[in-house]
Amino acid sequence: MANFVKIETVKTQSEAETLAWAESFAKKLSQGSVIALYGTLGAGKTVISRGICKGLGFSGQVNSPTYTIVHEYPNAAIPIYHLDLYRLPPHADLDEIGVDYYASQKGITLIEWPERLDDESILTHKIEIQIEDEQRIIQCSVKN
């Protein structure tokens, strides 16, 4: 299991603030970054994904790939691979989906519901979202 070090904690009061934070966070990412997005249903994982995509220059629509499992956004400054593992059973055969393939590409990989991964070694960043008193507390960690 990889060690992660907390690098930032922010509180946002609205979806617009969360989106703006994610857009600026995207500027800290580089090719090969794999970001795990942890949080309950409705916590804001897809909003953060949308902000990261916007921050990387993607201007199209970003929705959670809940049913398709993967959305690719090749028209950004850096290709973006957006995965949602929610519908997969724990310990599913992720090789069939190609999680390692996407993580090894020269793009940015966003993974919603990374709890389904058996091995976190591919992750470079973790974003954990909690909701408290109608605000989002976003904690970012980076692989040590």
Rank of each mutant, 00 (worst) to 15 (best):
H82G: 07
Y101Q: 03
D119P: 10
Q130G: 05
Q135I: 10
I78Q: 01
E17N: 11
P114F: 07
N75Q: 12
Y73R: 07
W113I: 01
E8Y: 11
I127R: 05
A22I: 12
I111D: 04
S64M: 10
S24A: 08
L83E: 01
K27S: 05
T66L: 10
S59K: 15
D119F: 13
I131K: 12
N3F: 15
G57H: 10
A20M: 11
P90S: 05
R50Y: 03
S14P: 14
W21C: 01
V10W: 12
E134S: 15
A36P: 07
V47E: 02
T66R: 12
P74T: 04
G39N: 08
P89D: 12
I52F: 07
A2C: 14
Y101K: 02
A26W: 06
K11H: 11
H125I: 01
K45E: 01
I35G: 00
I122Y: 08
I111V: 04
T124Q: 05
A76P: 12
N3Q: 15
L83T: 02
D95V: 12
I35H: 01
E120K: 15
Q105R: 14
K27D: 00
L123R: 09
A92P: 12
D95E: 15
G98R: 07
L37V: 04
L37D: 05
Y101L: 04
F58A: 00
G32T: 02
I138Q: 01
R116L: 02
I127Q: 02
T46E: 08
A76S: 13
E8W: 09
D95G: 11
E115D: 15
L94R: 11
E8P: 12
E134V: 11
D84E: 08
Y86G: 01
T124P: 07
T68M: 09
T46C: 10
D118Q: 15
H82P: 11
S30H: 13
P65D: 06
K143Y: 01
G55K: 12
K28D: 03
E23S: 13
E17V: 08
I138G: 00
D84C: 06
Y101T: 06
D93S: 09
T68P: 08
P79W: 00
A103D: 01
R87C: 03
A103I: 03
L117C: 06
V47D: 00
A103H: 04
I78T: 11
E112D: 06
T40W: 00
H82Y: 05
H91V: 08
K45I: 02
P79I: 02
T18R: 10
L56S: 01
L88N: 05
P74L: 12
E17S: 09
E15K: 14
Q105P: 00
G39F: 06
G51T: 11
I131L: 14
A76M: 07
T66K: 11
T12F: 10
D93Q: 13
A103Q: 06
Q105L: 13
T9S: 14
F25W: 11
Q139T: 15
I138A: 00
R50P: 05
F58W: 10
T46A: 06
G60S: 03
A36V: 07
W21M: 05
G57N: 10
D100R: 14
I111F: 05
G44H: 09
P114C: 03
T46G: 06
I80H: 00
I108D: 02
G107F: 05
S30P: 00
E23D: 04
